[in-house]
Simulated scan of single mutants.
Amino acid sequence: MEISFKGKRILVTGAGQGIGRGIAIELWRAGANIVALSRTRSHLESLQSEYPSIDIVDVDIGDWEKTRKVVESLGHFDALVNNAAVAVCEPFLDCSPSNFDKTFDVNVKAVLNISQVVARKMIENKTHGAIVNISSQASKAALKDHTIYSASKAALDALTRAMALELGPYGIRVNAINPTVIMTEMAKVGWSDPIKANEMLSKIPLGRFGEISEVVNAVVFLLSERSSMINGVELPIDGGFLAT
């Protein structure tokens, strides 16, 4: 099933590394004009050194006003992937207001901010666009030491449904993807402890963690016309974790 985004302009946040980088590259390979956004300039420069035609923008999306100005200046997009996120893992009794604010500023508030700007331009240009928000299985099931992160991703799921409802009449589809542990370089370090890994793996019927490509493929599908009647869903990519 070949999917082409030739002539389409797509913004990907958190595109400097991991899942976001994989999404940006695959959409570029499918013909899209990509704008990769990240807080870390060095990650973006590494991406652009490999793919010179990808445009890069560095901004801390936790800063509402600065982010709004930057995204406004980027012009019109046909699609958006809200991938950027932060995760602070700590026990419930140790959760701090500063970590709560930091997490929600990036994982929820920034998605609202960036999506408002992009969606308004889609509406002005009468673009039947698509938005994909990268959520987590943590929004659906309690995970130890993930209180604030889980709450932020549950809020993102709710935001996705509200966006789908209100933007749908303009022909703009909005969906979320809810992955399990995905084997990014960071995850390989974080889940290298066999005891920790085996506890999670025992709850996944397929018996393994996900690969970046498996998230990327779902994002590409949901952004494409192949999913033209899919709107407001939260798609688990979890090997059956949430089914058990």
Rank of each mutant, 00 (worst) to 15 (best):
M1P: 09
E2W: 03
E2V: 06
S4G: 02
K6F: 00
L11D: 02
A15F: 12
G18V: 12
G22C: 12
L27R: 07
G31I: 10
S42C: 03
H43K: 14
E45H: 07
Q48V: 08
S53T: 13
I54Y: 01
D55V: 02
V59P: 01
I61T: 08
I61K: 01
W64E: 12
T67M: 05
K69F: 01
E72T: 04
F77V: 14
N83T: 01
A84M: 05
A87V: 14
V88F: 13
L93H: 13
C95V: 15
C95K: 02
C95H: 02
S96C: 05
F100R: 07
T103W: 04
N107Q: 08
K109G: 13
A110D: 08
N113E: 10
V118A: 03
K126P: 01
T127W: 02
G129C: 09
N133M: 09
I134P: 00
S139H: 03
A158G: 13
A158W: 02
M163R: 04
P169Y: 12
R173W: 00
R173Q: 11
V174Q: 13
V181D: 09
T184H: 06
E185P: 01
E185I: 02
A187I: 09
S192Y: 05
I195R: 11
N198T: 10
E199M: 00
L206N: 12
F209T: 09
I212R: 04
V215M: 11
A218I: 15
F221R: 10
E225I: 03
S227Q: 11
S228M: 10
S228I: 05
M229K: 11
I230D: 08
E234G: 03
L235I: 14
G239S: 13
L242K: 11
L242S: 14
A243S: 15
A243H: 04
